[in-house]
Amino acid sequence: MSSATVAAAVLPNRRLAGTSPRSRAWGRFKRHRLAMFGSGVILVLVFAVIFGPMILPFDPLHIDLRHRFAPPPGNGHLFGTDQLGRDLLVRLLMAGRISLTIGFMAMVVSTLIGTSVGVTAGYYGGLVGTVLMRIVDAVLCFPSVFLLLALAAFIKPSILTITLIIAATGWMEVARVVQAQIKALRHRDFILAAEMLGASGRYVMTRELLPNAAGPIIVAATLTVARAILAEAYVSFLGYGIQAPTASWGNMLNNAQQYLNSAPWLAIFPGLMITLAVTSFNFIGDGLRDALDARMDLT
C-alpha cells in the first residue's frame, strides 16, 4: 500500500467552497499541457479550414498545368502544387473542411446512439441490459475496417453516407463507457431518492444519471472524433470514400501514392494533417479524462 493511497483512504476529501464542478474541472484541464496544446492545434485548424480558403489567392479546383509538381515552397505555393498544378495548401484546407466535418458529425451521431444504448442498458439492467450489451459486444467483435469497407462498397459515397457509416462502426465504445458509469451509479441512494418521489424512468435517466456520466461521455466523444477522422482517411484512401474532385485528406493520400518518389510532399502534408488532428484530439481526450475524472467529484 503506497502512502498516497493510505492518505487518500483516510483524509477527508474536502474542497474549497464556492467552486462548481465545472470550474474545478477546467482548472485541472488547464494544467494538462498536451491537452492545452491539442486544443490550440484544433482551434487553429478549425479557423484555418474555415477562413484559409477565403484568404488564399488560389482556387482549389483551378488547374494550372504549367505549374505542375511545384515543390514547396515555390511560386507563392507555400506547400507546393499537385499533378494538376493545383495549390496544395488550399486543397488541404478544403479537404480539412470535409474531414473535420465528417469527424464531428460522426462523433455526434455515434455519441447519441452510444449514449442512448448505454444509459438504457445501464439503467434497466437485467435482460434488456444483457441483450443490449451483447449486441454491442457482437458489433465490436466484427473488425471495424472490414465493416466500414463492406458498407462503403455497397452505398453510394457522399459526406452524409460516409458519416453514417463511420458512426455505425464507432458508437460501441461510447455505449460501453456509459453503461459502466450508469451501472455504477444506478444503486446510489440519490437515485432511490428520486424513485421514491415517483420519478419516471426517463426522468431518472436524463436528469439524475446522465449528468453524472457527462465526463466519460465527453471523453469518449473526443476520442471518437479522432477515430472518425482516421476512419474517413482509411475509406477514402482505399477509394471507397469521398470521390474526386472533392478533396479529403484520405483521398489526397490516395492520389499521392503514384508520385511518392517524385513528389513526396503530396503524401507528407495530408499525412501530417491527419496525424496532427488525430493526436490533438487524443491529447484533448486524455486531458478531459483527467479533468472530468468522476472520482475527483463524486465524493
Partner: peptide
C-alpha cells in the same frame, strides 16, 4: 470530524502527502 486527529496520526506515520 475535521479536528485534526487523522492528520496527527498520519504525520507520525509520515503518511501525509510528501
Amino acid at each position: 470530524s475535521g479536528s485534526g486527529k487523522s492528520v496527527t496520526s498520519l504525520a507520525v506515520m509520515r503518511l501525509t502527502p510528501p
